[in-house]
Write a protein that binds this DNA or RNA. Structure first.
Length: 190
DNA sequence: AGGAAGATCTACT
DNA sequence: GTAGATCTTCCTA
């Protein structure tokens, strides 16, 4: 499997967010491999982005956004863990939120983890996909750039059309449309 | 102690 | 499709 390397994430979050679409998210859990295609992402910036977790400055829970790219930034919202990958240019702040995946492998385990049967309802939302893949705060700071990591992103070549919109659920958004998704996918969060 | 949060579920129109 | 209740974590005071 061709794992995306660190330099992939050392770019503007928007660029990384668009390029993560169609890639494969891999979660090694015990002996099984849970995998899915990333179909929906959002880009977040630093102090200039009111919707960003980094907006109010560096805190105990968000310091990862300042740190090394290609690592996990995880936090809780309304009882849901949200999976982000730290991504920014050198010396800047940012991350990409993974909002939805299309399950490929380990689907039965995902069904158990989620307690639902419908494949279109397994991982079609940021809180749902972390539950399906059993990801939580304990994975904070994990690198996604190594095949040996419990969680990593791999190359996966498919053809698709991209579309974009404003970010979902944020109280104060930027002017720019920073949510990206695979057009027509049935696995989107909405 | 109080409140906000990048969501989800259910129950409707 | 929208509306409201509800959920836990972690911040601020």
């Amino acid at each position: 499997m061709e794992v995306l390397e660190r330099s992939f994430y050392e770019r503007d979050p928007k660029i990384v967010a668009t390029n993560l679409l169609g890639k494969k998210l891999v979660r090694r859990l015990n002996d099984t491999s849970l995998e899915g295609i990333i179909v929906e992402t959002e880009a977040y910036y630093g102090l200039e982005d009111p919707a960003s977790r980094a907006y109010k400055g560096r805190k105990n829970y968000n310091f990862a956004m300042w740190g090394e790219v290609g690592r996990l930034f995880i936090y809780n919202v309304h009882n849901n863990w949200l999976l982000n990958i730290v991504a920014h240019e050198v010396g800047k702040i940012g991350a990409v939120l993974i909002r939805a995946i299309e399950p490929l492998q380990g689907i039965e385990v995902m069904r158990q983890n989620r307690g639902v049967n419908d494949i279109f309802n397994l991982a079609n939302g940021p809180g749902k996909l972390t539950k399906a893949l059993k990801i939580d705060k304990s994975h904070y700071g994990f690198p996604v750039t190594s095949k040996d990591s419990e969680i990593f992103i791999a190359e996966y070549r498919i053809k698709f059309e991209m579309d974009c919109s404003y970010r979902i659920g944020v109280s104060k958004d930027l002017e720019e449309q920073l949510r990206f998704f695979i057009k027509g996918s049935r696995f989107l969060s909405r």
